[in-house]
Computed example of a mutant assay.
Amino acid sequence: MTPPKTPIAVLISGSGSNLQALIDGQQSGDLPIEIVAVISNRPEVRGLERARAAGITAITLDHKGFDSREAFDLALTEQLEQLQPKLVVLAGFMRILTPAFTNHFAGRMLNIHPSLLPKYQGLHTHQRALEAGDAEHGVTVHFVTAELDGGPAAIQAVVPVLDTDTADTLAARVQQQEHIIYPKAVRWFCEGRLTMAANRALLDGEPLPPSGYQVRHSQP
């Protein structure tokens, strides 16, 4: 018997490469999901084209049309409530969310951030890792809380930093891992394996370490 598909909504601000990984998983049947809508705070971005090409509802909610962050987040909440997703997936959604929004969707909203959190919250993570002389870098999928990039980690992929790396080459290798671990975390959630309780991420009911489930890559 085929398990029921979990309705999810994906929030984007740009090209949507992680969105494409989820679309691919939905279309292949590897992921038990139905993407009910893709919502962008920026009009005419590539991610909206990806959604339309896959027959998925594509919605623009331009943040520039709102007087405040609170007003935008309220409109976004109302839009999501109409869609009734069980999971909200942030895939390159470049907005700082209000506590009212994050609290409303607590435990059912995931984000992906290109660093080994808690290192390098915010922007320019690859360059910051290089400037710090880090031997390793990577990407984290985490539950979203009111703290920017501070929610409990579900899974991390770790890659080595090479002597020849630039911010662009390092970003490209990290992005390859993004497209692997984000669908994995979404699958865990949809299967009921990944949950959040007391500000901790749990896998199969057991608390994960602060870094989450960690996947290490010894080769470039």
Score class of each variant (00 low, 15 high):
V215M: 04
E44V: 03
L203D: 03
L110N: 10
R50Q: 08
P220I: 05
D165M: 12
Q175K: 15
L130F: 01
S40V: 02
R128E: 06
G122A: 03
I8Q: 07
Q177T: 12
P220L: 04
H104E: 11
G122I: 00
V186S: 04
A75E: 11
L80A: 04
H179Q: 15
M1C: 12
L162F: 07
T6P: 11
R108H: 08
F66G: 09
K64F: 01
D73F: 03
L130E: 00
Q26A: 15
P220A: 13
Q84H: 12
L90G: 09
T125L: 01
D204I: 01
Y120A: 00
I180Q: 15
R69V: 06
A198E: 14
R216A: 05
A91D: 08
K86I: 00
R52G: 07
S17H: 09
D165T: 14
D149Q: 05
R200H: 12
Q82V: 09
T2Q: 15
T77G: 04
I35C: 10
Q121N: 01
D168A: 14
S115Y: 02
Q156P: 13
H124I: 00
V139N: 08
Q84M: 05
L148Y: 09
R95V: 03
G150C: 02
P43F: 04
I59K: 13
F66R: 12
L19I: 07
A135C: 05
N111Q: 13
T195G: 02
A51R: 08
N199M: 07
L80I: 13
D62I: 06
A167Y: 04
R187K: 15
A9P: 09
F189T: 01
R46T: 13
V141D: 04
S40Y: 01
